[in-house]
Design a protein around this nucleic acid. Structure first.
Lengths: 253, 253
DNA sequence: GAGTGGTCTAGACCACGGA
DNA sequence: CCGTGGTCTAGACCACTCA
């Protein structure tokens, strides 16, 4: 007979807070994720069934399901009808998140730097106007920045923003990321659509990235949308491929 | 006063099937997506509130919420507490899905081709053994394929699979994609973790891709997991960047 | 204050996998 | 057959936004 044991570390869920602002399903999924990462629940282990977990925690089954679903969506757990819920094998990696390069770098303990190469307000040409959803000739902000980490160049970032952001200062951009500046103005990025590709470095990119002319760069073309679904930023970026790559986890529907 | 109209095209939801095997929330989200893509619900429009929709459709609110959530997760809708649910502005693009290159190509109407460059069973070295979760020296399948679309080379794909797949034939791989072959054997890929980068073409890659030596290639390193969370495939792929790129939609939590 | 989405409950029935 | 997750219901209360 196979190993029939199921896992559920009650001790990891002893401090659920029913009164605070943090949703219960989030408290459960966070603690469950921590238990998996710490090895308290081993790789490949089967969890108890959902009804038993709900009873143990004193929660309803939908709430427990939502917590589990969270981790299934992130590729940490796998559910099979008639079988149960299991921890996925293999070391877990951090997925790409909806954050700016600046935040990616600071959160990994590196020291980011920014050089503003261009920062001007000008009239939108047809291409940019279409992408930003504004009229041709309307004022837009054109931004070009060089990004470094620990003084090594990592990326050249070119952005276009609607005219309402014309009052952003160069000093603001030098000390924090674009998304942080936008958030401080009450603009939250909720959705980004991006296309990742590769090409040779062109123009001054090679020099700015510290690589030889014609070497490969990783490119991203991004459109970012705010709470209300309006376009707030268009980005054409290129990255030094030996300094940066994209990790993603895909989960089948 | 602004446009306060809310949208809900009842006619698009006239044929919900309560008896069939298709979940109601899926039927609702599919029809809603179609209504958005067709312009029946315009870009930027506000939907009716969830309780009213549930009443119209004769469904419970959780079911309607789940349908809406599906589209929120895919970046088609935005929800704001106290405000409502709106269609995101801008043209909608197809996201990267958990499918193989072969399927990506056929579904976009192109004619894919495969040349098998290598297909052998051999002993796993330490690197591959670790990645596949098998022991060093155990049999594994080593595969290398060149992919074309309409006779233009697109990618060079190198794969490693556990020994249980040693009986896959070269003929099978020439006529369909690897994921199709696996699915026909009852192996469903549920999760893939991948890293996207760029580098120069090396070795015979430039020749196989029909590009000059040292030109950029887009690279993917992928580990794919099945239903049970076991590693079933490791891939090291490179793509011609002028023929292929990755599109993703990121949604903030 | 009125209206919205966010969360949660306590059940129910069904479909699938395995013994 | 039983146990599992998959779906669905009909409510409830709360937090947030806007007028």
């Amino acid at each position: 007979m196979a190993d029939e044991r199921t896992y559920w570390p009650d001790e990891a869920f002893a401090d659920l807070d029913r009164t605070g602002p943090v949703p219960l399903y989030f408290q459960v999924s966070s603690r469950l994720e921590a238990a998996i990462h710490s090895g308290l629940i081993p790789s490949g282990a089967r969890l108890e069934n959902e009804i038993a977990i709900a009873a143990r925690l004193g929660l309803s089954r939908p709430t427990v399901r939502r917590a589990i679903q969270e981790l299934v969506d992130r590729g940490l757990l796998v559910r099979r009808r008639g079988i149960g819920t299991q921890v996925v094998q293999g070391q877990v990696t951090r997925p790409v998140e909806l954050s700016s390069l600046f935040e990616d770098l600071t959160s990994t303990g590196h020291r980011p730097g920014t050089v503003i190469l261009r920062h001007e307000v000008r009239a939108a040409d047809e291409t940019i106007a279409n992408q930003l959803g504004v009229s041709v000739g309307e004022d837009i902000v054109h931004l070009r920045r060089q990004r470094t980490t620990d003084d090594v160049p990592v990326a050249v970032l070119e952005n276009f923003l609607p005219g309402e952001f014309a009052d952003i200062t160069t000093a603001q951009l030098e000390t924090s990321g674009l998304y942080q500046v936008l958030r401080a103005r009450g603009v939250a990025i909720r959705i980004a659509k991006q296309k990742i590709g590769a090409r040779r470095a062109q123009g001054d990119e090679a020099e700015l990235l510290g690589i030889d002319k014609g070497h490969p760069v990783l490119t991203v073309e991004r459109a970012a949308f705010d709470n209300a679904g309006r376009v707030v930023e268009i980005g054409h970026h290129c990255y030094r491929p030996d300094m940066y790559s994209f990790e993603t986890t895909l989960v089948a529907k």
